[in-house]
Each structure stands twice: as C-alpha cells, then as structure tokens.
C-alpha cells in the first residue's frame, strides 16, 4: 500500500513541512521549497501583504505547495480565531496552524486557549493544526474537537535543541488517531529522522534550515532524513538490545529433550 499522509482530505507525500519566518531572503524560501520538494509550508498571516507585489511572501511559494497560515502573534483564543478568519477572507485557504503564545520569552504555547480556538475553528470548517506543548490529555481533547493533527514541540521554538520531548510524543503517537507532527526545536536532520522513526506523521522545521550556512542544502538533507525515518518506521525497526546474543544458547538442551 502506498504510504501517504492525509490531512483535511489532502494527500501529502513529502512529510517535511517548512516554516518561513527566519529566512534572509524571500528568494531563498522559494529555493528551499523547490530543493526539499516540501508540499506544506506555513506562513504567518502577520507577514502576508496582499497589497504589495514586491513584498508579498506568497509570490515565492510554488503553486504545488499547500499553504498553512499560522496565527503567530495571537495571545489568546479570541485573537487566534480572528486571525484565522482574516486569513481565510484574504484567500489563504482553510488550513490553519493555531499558535497561541502568551509568553514572549520562551514562545511557549497556551494549550488551554489553543483548545478553545480549535473548538471554534473546526466547527467553521477550518483544517486545524494546533501547535502545543506535548500533553496527551489536551491532545485527546483536541482530537475530539476536530483537530486534523496535533503539533507538539520538540524543544522550544528556535532553540535547535532537538527532540527533547520524545517520551511524551511517543505516547501521543501510540494513543492518538490523528497525525502527530513535531513542530519546533528540531535542529538536525538526524533529529527529524528520530521523530519519523517513532511514527510521527511529519516534522515542521524553520530555524534549522533558515539559519544554516546553506539553507537549500540543509532543506534537502532534512527532506531525505524525514523520508529515511519514515521508511525505517514502516519497515519496523529492529529491536535494540544492549547485550550480545549467544550463538550457543544455554537452554538449547531443553528443546532437544522434548518429544
């Protein structure tokens, strides 16, 4: 069976999602998307200027990409809902990454307000992908409220510290029926592969690609790592043991005596 990620009725082949907030140049965003063959890209509505031809970031996003507008800047559910509606009205589609961040020091999300926004926006027909602190209980509530996927952070945004929330994300992957997409904190392709080996649906990366010496090369590396991690997951990882297995087992004689 072909392995495809389906979210909100859309079939996605490339499981590397790309964020656009930190690039040195809009043209680099375009190159990165082309080089990585990413299909899902997130852009903050606050950065989209439909009225300016030269400044409109959307002009640099290839046609085949699926736009997931995010609610960056929202401090509570009310603001996130308003931004989502504005995004839709501006013609940015109905995929929305809910970011509710009432903490400007560490940029940590507010799970409770995110849930409230998800409840409202799902009912309005948005494909809602909430960015959250990893938490199974809230993730289950998000699933019940109609979230199309959940996006737990791997580490705080922009830190490149890697997949530090692995144990909780592992539980979420096991327990939820919607895709779990690790978003934020992933610093290296190997860490993205780690997320995918665990069974995550996708990985979203921005800082690690945007601030690399060669963003295009790094995007390609991430794309391949995500693909490799997915294949590894589907292939069933060999059990890892920390002791050697004896070629002459001590209990072999027991089997020989049975008739």
């Amino acid at each position: 069976m072909e392995d495809k990620l389906i979210i909100g009725g859309e079939t996605i082949t490339n499981r590397l999602f790309i964020g656009t907030g930190k690039f040195e140049n809009k043209k680099v965003i375009k190159n990165v998307l082309e080089k990585s063959k990413a299909e899902v890209v997130t852009v903050a509505l606050r950065r989209i200027d439909m009225e300016s031809k030269s400044e409109n970031i959307l002009a640099n996003i290839p046609k085949h990409c699926l736009l997931m507008t995010n609610t960056s800047g929202a401090r509570n559910a009310k603001e996130a809902i308003r931004i989502a509606r504005l995004a839709k009205a501006a013609g940015c589609g109905n995929w929305i990454k809910i970011e509710v961040i009432p903490d400007n020091k560490y940029l940590l999300p507010d799970n409770y307000e995110t849930l409230k926004a998800t409840e409202v926006l799902s009912k309005e027909g948005f494909v809602v992908l909430p960015y959250i602190n990893p938490d199974l209980i809230i993730a289950r509530q998000l699933e019940k409220s109609g979230a199309a996927a959940v996006m737990p952070l791997g580490s705080p945004i922009g830190t490149n510290r890697g997949f530090r929330t692995k144990e909780i994300v592992r539980i979420m992957v096991n327990e939820l029926n919607i895709p779990v997409i690790v978003d934020a904190g992933i610093g290296k392709p190997s860490e993205a592969a780690d997320c995918m080996e665990l069974g995550c649906g996708a990985v979203l990366v921005n800082t690690a690609i945007a601030t690399a010496y060669n963003p295009e090369g790094m995007a390609e590396a991430f794309s391949k790592a995500v693909e490799a991690g997915r294949i590894a997951y589907l292939s069933g990882l060999a059990v890892s043991v920390d002791r050697a297995r004896a070629s002459s087992p001590l209990t072999g004689f027991l089997r020989g005596n049975e008739s």
Binding site: F23, E24, N25, K26, L45, R46, R47, I48, D49, S52, E55, G73, A74, E79, R82, I83, L86
Partner: peptide, 11 residues
C-alpha cells in the same frame, strides 16, 4: 537580511 515591512495584522 530580509527586510520585514509587515509584521502584524490588526486584531
């Protein structure tokens, strides 16, 4: 550096 001319949407 990318110059950001718009970075907010009135809510």
């Amino acid at each position: 550096y990318q110059s950001i001319l718009k970075d907010w949407v009135g809510v």
